[in-house]
Write a protein that binds this DNA or RNA. Structure first.
Lengths: 190, 190
DNA sequence: GCCACTTCTGTCATTCGGTGTCATGAATGG
DNA sequence: CCATTCATGACACCGAATGACAGAAGTGGC
């Protein structure tokens, strides 16, 4: 069961994230101080840092959880499937689950350099784990797993940028398909 | 001719960068304050920020200049050459020009998260310019140019990581060749 | 050499992100 | 009911970064 403490903690964290996102989208990330967020949420500046290790981290969370299970889903793919197809399928599933709120967050990230940097950092960590999972599943050497996952990351990046270029009406999944098709590496069929 | 002011400025900037790199490699980026660097170089902390916009920027410079002319070299490639081959050739040339000092810098960057973030940010800007140059030269749509340059960036990343994995004896150019060969996208031969 | 004019520099003060400390009060578990 | 744990706020502190100002030094014209 979830104790009162745990529930309160999650509630405050969600409240802080919501307040922060609102202020950020309204005035821009750099024009909002941690004190602003804390005061708007009715807590002290010190308490903010008890819920988030850094100011940037108040933005992630809705995005972060999604990236965690990609490695698991990857190991659950059919055994004979080529690695590139596995990555494509899993990531296609992932972009399909991105909801409207996450898209607003992604836009904020895309236009804020410091957030972009933090985002790339997290994505790189995730990519590293995914590469390890892929190497274990398909018995690939680390270099090849690195190549495949990095290329997949590039595909996601390009699809994301193209989606931002075209506006929210474009279909992200279709853009990702195009990117994966165009980028299919030579090493998938050795 | 270069006036005394200009020469003095470059000298101080180089001195600051050298001192900073020495302290960073010795004690780690986060364990060195700007005051430390400034004092070791015999200037005030305030003056440091007149030469570099941020602490991280004292590390780049030896690396940055190299990335600037990649777009130019790209436009100078033979007209009929496939885009992927052009990127391969130019970047191969680029890694070949990386000297020992730059390698030490790269190692420092690779093991310092905040430097990595800054580095990725700069590389992304460079990639964007290169994509524009490539699109203009080979009359590609922005999306395809994006895909090719991002994949090339992934190749460089993977080669760099593999090089760090294997130690300084490995040949970076050869690793880059392998990455580019394995990653050759399907869209190079439409 | 002398004199404006610009640029560089150090000093001081300030903002902001982030951390350590400590006392207080509330939740928890027996 | 009581001892322990945990969250909180208040305060001080560090380091990165910026603005303001005064003085030193280079630059160009006379």
């Amino acid at each position: 069961m979830a104790g009162l403490r745990e529930r309160a903690r999650r509630a405050v964290q969600a409240e802080l994230a919501a307040v922060a996102l609102e202020l950020f989208t309204e005035r821009g990330f750099d024009e909002v101080t941690v004190d602003d967020i804390a005061r708007a949420a009715g807590v002290s500046k010190r308490s903010f840092f008890r819920y988030f290790p850094a100011k940037e981290d108040a933005v992630f969370g809705g995005v972060q959880v999604m990236g965690d299970d990609i490695a698991d889903q990857l190991t659950a793919r059919p055994a004979g499937e080529p690695p590139w197809e596995s990555l494509h399928a899993v990531l296609r599933d992932w972009v399909a689950r991105i909801d409207a709120e996450s898209r607003a967050t992604l836009r904020l990230i895309e236009r804020t350099p410091s957030l972009r940097a933090r985002f790339q950092q997290r994505r790189e960590e995730a990519r590293s784990r995914i590469a390890a999972a892929l190497a274990a599943r398909a018995s690939l050497d680390p270099f090849t797993a690195d190549l495949l996952t990095s290329a997949a990351g590039a595909a996601v990046d390009c699809a994301s940028r193209e989606w931002l270029r075209r506006g929210p009406d474009a279909d992200p999944a279709h853009l990702l398909d195009t990117a994966f098709t165009h980028l299919r590496p030579a090493c998938t069929t050795p």
